[in-house]
Structures are given as C-alpha cells and as structure tokens.
C-alpha cells in the first residue's frame, strides 16, 4: 500500500504535465480561434472633463491579432462588410466627422485581386462637441465598432463590439 500512493500521485502529475504539453503543442489543432479574440477594442475621450460648449475627440483603438485583417471602411468590393464606427445619440453631444485610417491594399494567396484592409493596430477618431444648454453632470458616450475579420484562408462572422466612455461635463468658464 505504501508504494502505490507515490506512484499514483506521480502518474497524475505526469498526466497533468503531458496535458499541459499537449495544450501548448496543439493549441488550435482542428479548431478555429474564437472571433472575439481576433480584435480587441478600446475607446477613449481626449479629455476626462469637458466644458459645456467645448469640443473633444473620441479615439477608438482596435488591435487586430497578428495574421488576421479586417475590411477597411471602404472595401473594394460591394459585397464585403466594411469596418464602421457608430456613436449612439447622446443628449447634449453633437458628433462630427469620423476619420478612418488609410487602408492597406493587400494581395492574398486565394485571390488575384487586391483587398482593402486594416491589420495590426488602428485608430479611428470622431469629432464631438458639447452643446450650450447641457448642465454640468457625468455622462456616458457609447458606440459600436463593427468589423468582419479574415486571415489568408478563411473568414469569421461579422462582429460588433460595444463600448462606453464616461465623461464629466463641467461648467464653462
């Protein structure tokens, strides 16, 4: 009895070690990565506190996983799903132009035609203005980042990521 216990423990330990090795050797064997891991989005405002009547900028930073791309805001093909930033209507805030980054024209092995895409880290900017008649308070600006990601072999379902940015409206000087 005394000898079986350490062997059992050792066997279990061996199993766990092999399991960890397997997971590291075959991280995606036969499986596609989950789409939510492909693009990570963060949104910021240029100021934490904004005067009534003041202007500010919203920046949405999207980190696209290495080896993947998303369509640009203006894809070269009418059927492709563009990357779009939408800001939800917020009382007292007027949204201006949205500026998308310059896309890359890339050739992939499956196609003789270039695709207009974003990869790596991209930033999208939106102009915003606080209206005169808003009283000082804390508000939230929210929006949706929509994209459709692919790699050089396959595409993933279109996704939308919602975000919220807390803002403090202060009295104008």
């Amino acid at each position: 009895m005394a000898t079986t216990r350490p062997i059992t423990r050792f066997t279990l330990f061996g199993g766990v070690v092999v399991l960890l090795l397997c997971l590291s050797v075959f991280p995606s064997s036969g499986q596609a990565p989950k789409d939510t891991n492909l693009v990570h989005v963060e949104a910021y405002a240029s100021h934490e506190s904004i005067n009534a009547t003041g202007s500010f900028q919203i920046t949405v930073v999207a980190n696209i996983k290495q080896g993947f791309h998303i369509n640009s805001h203006k894809p070269l093909n009418e059927f492709l799903i563009p990357t779009v930033l939408r800001l939800n209507e917020t009382r007292g805030i007027a949204f201006g132009s949205i500026y998308y980054p310059r896309p890359k024209q890339v050739l992939f092995s499956f196609s003789p035609k270039h695709l207009s895409v974003y990869d790596g880290k991209i930033s999208i900017f939106a102009e915003c203005k606080v209206s005169e008649n808003i009283s000082p308070k804390n508000i939230k600006v929210s929006g949706v980042f929509t994209y459709q990601a692919c790699n050089d072999q396959m595409c993933f379902m279109p996704e939308s990521i919602c975000f919220e940015i807390p803002l403090k409206i202060v009295k104008a000087d």
């Binding site: 330990f13 092999v18 399991l19 997971l23 064997s29």
Partner: peptide
C-alpha cells in the same frame, strides 16, 4: 510504465478539454 500512464491520462484529459 509511469510515463506511459501519465501520457494516456494526459491524452484523455486533453480530449475532454478540447471536445
């Protein structure tokens, strides 16, 4: 023997985790 046992347990656990 121990290594073989460990390997088999690892494979089975891996399969259960993966699927």
């Amino acid at each position: 023997m121990v290594a073989v046992g460990g390997f088999l347990i690892g494979i089975i656990l891996f399969a259960q985790v993966a699927n």
